[in-house]
């Protein structure tokens, strides 16, 4: 379980105060207005921002003092997820070993990840030769390879609006792929979305961030959907 325990942060005039428990091996959708603090929450979890107070725990172990790369996390950003000068294979491999010197087991992991995201045969391609959807698949493959790394598994996937630049059809396709990967490899996913309705049939839980804090947190089911929508509209 991911636990955000009374984490406080001050960025200019904006104060953030987060308390949150996210069950492992589920998809948690973060929704809210622009500037409400969704990305800041992911930055705190990933270690890009240092909290002024509070603790972040993964499976009851504090990770607050860990450097970003030491956390059990892989992040996917809206853009710049790939290094433009590296091949697709190297872009995935660098997630397992920053020196790009892979063991045979790690090479196998990279190849498996490529197969899982449906990009077999494109290993040598550079990001400029890939479509937007394919580029995000490569980033996803890297997350997958890192999640399965036996020496240092990173089963927590943070997605900061990674599909907002894609067309609706590709977005739907990518959501399907994430749902499949999440189930197959038992990942815990936190995904930011500007479109809550897109999340309703995708996420297990929906979390509304408002004014730097967690306003609503609900598990999603067909029964409580109308009540959640009412609550959202009221806020």
């Amino acid at each position: 379980m991911l636990k955000i325990d009374n984490v406080k942060l001050n960025l200019g005039e904006m104060n953030f105060d987060f308390n949150l428990n996210c069950k492992a091996q589920q998809i948690h959708a973060l929704v809210g207005r622009s500037g409400s603090g969704k990305s800041t929450l992911l930055n705190l979890i990933a270690g890009f921002e240092t909290p002024a107070q509070g603790d972040i725990l993964w499976n009851e172990t504090s990770i607050s003092s860990h450097e970003p790369h030491q956390r059990p996390i892989t992040s996917l950003f809206q853009e710049h997820n790939l290094f433009a000068h590296l091949s697709m294979f190297d872009n995935i491999a660098i997630g397992l070993n920053p020196s790009l010197k892979l063991s045979s087991q790690q090479t196998q992991l990279v190849n498996n990840a490529i197969t899982s995201v449906g990009l077999t045969g494109m290993q040598a391609k550079k990001p400029k030769d890939l479509s937007g959807g394919e580029a995000q698949r490569v980033a996803l493959a890297r997350a997958l390879a890192r999640a399965q790394d036996p020496q240092n598994p990173r089963p927590l996937l943070l997605l900061d609006e990674p599909f907002s630049a894609l067309d609706p059809e590709t977005r739907l396709e990518m959501r399907g792929l994430i749902a499949k990967i999440q189930k197959d490899f038992k990942l815990t996913v936190l995904i930011i979305s500007h479109n809550p309705t897109e999340m309703l049939d995708f996420a297990d839980e929906i979390i509304l961030i408002d004014n730097g804090t967690v306003a609503i947190q609900h598990e999603l089911s067909e029964d409580n959907l109308p009540a959640i929508l009412d609550e959202f509209i009221n806020i």
Binding site: F48, H80, F83, L86, P98, S99
Partner: peptide, 25 residues
């Protein structure tokens, strides 16, 4: 701007960052 967050999250630093990321760019 493009690489900082990614390098931080993947632990690419020191000579690896210079050799694989910064120099080619």
């Amino acid at each position: 701007e493009r690489h900082q967050k990614l390098c931080l999250s993947l632990g690419i630093k020191g000579i690896n960052r210079t050799r694989i990321i910064d120099w080619p760019t």
